[in-house]
Design a protein around this nucleic acid. Structure first.
Lengths: 224, 224
DNA sequence: TTATGTGAACCGGTTCACAGCT
DNA sequence: AGCTGTGAACCGGTTCACATAA
């Protein structure tokens, strides 16, 4: 019975997915989840679309429309059960499962990512840390022993590695990405400031830290 | 003469700015600049909208439309002078000027940001590093002596501090942001995973590192 | 009455088609 | 002829209005 319902939602999710969910909707779902987790910590049991939308900085109708792409999770006249809605958003975003992740690059950015609190909360579990610098190999980071880059080939089979995180210099990023694709990883999260070329079968997300500055300096430049 | 032309563009930029430049346009401008800098390093002198747009992964008309909000920088029938276009985009984004920036938080993320190569390239200059942990104060990071958080009040006057970068725990971010606003900083770049409340007079950009994961896991969850 | 879920209307960002220079 | 610059057309994402349910 439970399985039946699960499958129904799951299939409906996949079907609707085909009529493309926008990037903005996914981004907002992460915001809703963030706020929801805050409300849950404060002990709130129930939440209305108005309240949650205000917390996330969007309109209530926007929130309801976003959710409607995936199913209906609320109760008319009442609102949403906070825990239940959080679980549903986690399932939609895929963060209800664990994603074995390999971190490539044990420089300062690698250290920062390994220590980032938010990841454990979202079921990101680093299963390996790799680096090409012989001096670093054998030392530990976040409880893991740093291994040579070549081990990137082994993780998908040995430990079910699904995602690689690139915290390497821009000049090395494309090469490592190519290795990762051939090794069978499904997702790449890139922190190097280059536009990577990858086939559409892998999920790629690039974070360019300088972009944040440029948005701010743009904003500041146009007023004065 | 030169000043006259500068003023013209500048004013036209400001006027057009009032009919709001979209977030997407600014993001793409950073991409164009990135690719342009790559082409310049390879010694290219001239570039067409087709070529640059392809490198940035957008349509040529999109690129020309984006630029048209700020002026006309090309030569019909010829294309763009690469160096000249890069200078113009830098000016539009405001990265032609230096932005004295104070880094708050000397944890692992602070270290990563202080060592991030891309910043110097975009005229971000850290003038101070602050932390509230007495154990860290007096040690050095990126050539700067770590000072107590309270020094945040002094930088805007003493060293023209314009921007603060928050690399602090989520629980402290709002407090530090409030201090920064009262201290007179114009821009805040936030790496803590919380939605900050700030008045519209300051430019705020938040980077949530876990969001990258959630985009990827969403992508991977909906296919299979 | 209150608050969700959703087709329809709206609006802004993208793309098209072509005028304007070189 | 070649490529930019831009008003107009188009399209997709947001907002509205209201049917639906508790």
């Amino acid at each position: 019975m439970t399985i039946g319902i699960f499958c129904f939602y799951y299939r409906s999710m996949v079907r609707k997915r085909r009529n493309k969910i926008s990037y903005s909707t996914v981004r907002r779902l992460t915001l809703y989840l963030r706020e929801l987790e805050g409300l849950l910590e404060e002990g709130q049991k129930t939440v209305s679309s108005r309240e949650l939308a205000a917390a996330a900085g969007v309109k209530a109708t926007q929130l309801r429309k976003d959710l409607s792409f995936f199913g209906s999770f609320g109760v008319r006249g009442r609102g949403y059960d906070a825990e239940d809605l959080a679980d549903n958003i986690r399932r939609i975003l895929g963060v209800n499962k664990e994603w074995p992740t390999v971190l490539v690059g044990a420089g300062s950015l690698g250290h920062a990512l390994a220590g980032y609190k938010g990841f454990a909360l979202h079921n990101i579990r680093f299963v390996g840390v790799l680096d090409s610098d012989p001096a670093k190999i054998g030392t530990t980071l976040a409880g893991l022993t740093i291994e040579p880059l070549e081990r990137i080939w082994d993780y998908p089979k040995e430990k079910g590695g699904k995602i690689v995180v690139l915290a390497v210099p821009a000049s090395a990023a494309q090469d490592v990405a190519d290795m990762a694709i051939r090794a069978g990883y499904d997702g790449i999260i890139n922190f190097a400031p280059v536009r990577l070329r990858v086939p559409p079968v892998v999920a790629l997300y690039s974070v360019d830290l300088s972009m944040a500055f440029e948005h701010v300096t743009f904003e500041l430049s146009t007023e004065n």
